[in-house]
C-alpha cells in the first residue's frame, strides 16, 4: 500500500476528483447555506437602496470563468430587477458580451414588465482595459456613445441625461481578473467615492480582501459566495423558489463538499506517506 501511494500515478488523483465532482452532479445534491456577514453586506448594499436607483453592472468575465461567476451575476441581476433598479450593463472583457446577453435574456423572460432603454441598457464591450473606466467616470460619452446595437445614448430614455459613472448609486462588479474589481476600485470607487460591491473568482478574493470595507462595500467569493447570496435572495423573494435557474450556485455546492473532502483526504494521505517514509529513512 505504502509503495503504491508513494509512487502514486497522478491519474488516480484525477479520477478521484472527477468522481467527487460527477457523483453529486448526477445525484443532484443540494444543501442549505448559512450566509456570512460579508455576503449579507453585499446583499444589503443593493437591497437597501431606494427602488429605482442607478446601478452600474460591470460584468467583466468570460465563458472560461462562467462556472464560477455566472450564478452570482444572474443573482445580482435578479435582485436589481426585483428592486426595480436601473441597470447599466457593461463589460471590459472582449468575450463578455455573450455573458451580458444572458442576463438580458433573463430580464426579458423573468421580468417582462421591465423595458429596455428605460429600466436597463446594454452598453456592450469597451476595449482598453482600465481606460474606459477612467474616461467613463469623467464623461461617459467619451468612451461609450451608443448601446450594443449602435443606438445613440441620446435616444434612450435612461441614458439621455446620464453624464458619467459618478452619478450611479452603486457599482456592481463581477470580475474574473484583469481588468476587473481592482481596476474599478482604483479608478472609480477610490477616486470618486462611488459605493462598489464585487463578486469575484475564488482565486481573486483573498487578494481583494484588503479593499474591504473602505474601498469595497462587500465581496462575494466564487460559488460559495454566490450560493449564500442565492439563499438570501430566495429568503427575500420566495417566488424564486419555483425557479430552478435561480439556484444554480446552491446546486454547485454539492460537488464542492465532496471534492473538498477528497482534497483533505489527499493532503492527509500525502502527509502519512511523508511521515512513514521519514521513519523508514526514505526521505
Amino acid at each position: 500500500m505504502y509503495e503504491f501511494l508513494k509512487n502514486l500515478d497522478r491519474r488516480w488523483i484525477f479520477l478521484l476528483i472527477l468522481l467527487a465532482v460527477a457523483i453529486p452532479i448526477l445525484g443532484e445534491w443540494q444543501f442549505p447555506e448559512k450566509p456570512s456577514p460579508m455576503v449579507q453586506s453585499v446583499f444589503d448594499a443593493i437591497e437597501n437602496l431606494p427602488a429605482g436607483s442607478d446601478i452600474w453592472m460591470a460584468y467583466d468575465y468570460d465563458p472560461g470563468s462562467q462556472g464560477e461567476l455566472h450564478p452570482m451575476a444572474l443573482a445580482f441581476t435578479r435582485q436589481c430587477a426585483f428592486k426595480r433598479h436601473k441597470m447599466y450593463f457593461m463589460t471590459l472583457w472582449p468575450q463578455g458580451p455573450p455573458m451580458i446577453q444572458k442576463n438580458i435574456e433573463l430580464l426579458i423572460k423573468e421580468f417582462p414588465d421591465l423595458e429596455y432603454g428605460v429600466d436597463y441598457v446594454n452598453l456592450g464591450y469597451r476595449p482598453g482595459y482600465e481606460g474606459p473606466i477612467k474616461l467613463a467616470v469623467i464623461d461617459l460619452r467619451k468612451t461609450i456613445a451608443a448601446d450594443v446595437d449602435g443606438k445613440s445614448l441620446d435616444d434612450l430614455p435612461m441614458t439621455r441625461d446620464f453624464k458619467n459613472i459618478q452619478e450611479v448609486d452603486l457599482i456592481v462588479n463581477v470580475s474574473a481578473g484583469y481588468p476587473g474589481t481592482k481596476e474599478w476600485v482604483l479608478y472609480a470607487s477610490t477616486s470618486y467615492n462611488i459605493p462598489t460591491v464585487a463578486g469575484c473568482t475564488g482565486v481573486q478574493a483573498p487578494y481583494l480582501y484588503p479593499y474591504v470595507p473602505q474601498q469595497l462595500d462587500g465581496l462575494l467569493g466564487a460559488i460559495k459566495g454566490a450560493a449564500e447570496y442565492e439563499f438570501l435572495l430566495l429568503e427575500a423573494y420566495p417566488s424564486l423558489r419555483e425557479n430552478p435557474k435561480a439556484q444554480e450556485a446552491l446546486r454547485r455546492m454539492g460537488p464542492q463538499l465532496l471534492a473538498h473532502l477528497v482534497l483533505i483526504g489527499l493532503i492527509v494521505a500525502g502527509n502519512v506517506i511523508y511521515f512513514v517514509g521519514r521513519s523508514r529513512g526514505d526521505v
Partner: peptide, 19 residues
C-alpha cells in the same frame, strides 16, 4: 488561505463542464 479558498472556484469550473 488563498490556496484553500481557490479550490472551490476550480471545482466549480469542473462542475460546470460536467454539467
Amino acid at each position: 488561505a488563498s490556496f484553500g479558498y481557490t479550490v472551490m472556484g476550480r471545482i466549480a469550473l469542473l462542475a460546470d463542464r460536467l454539467q
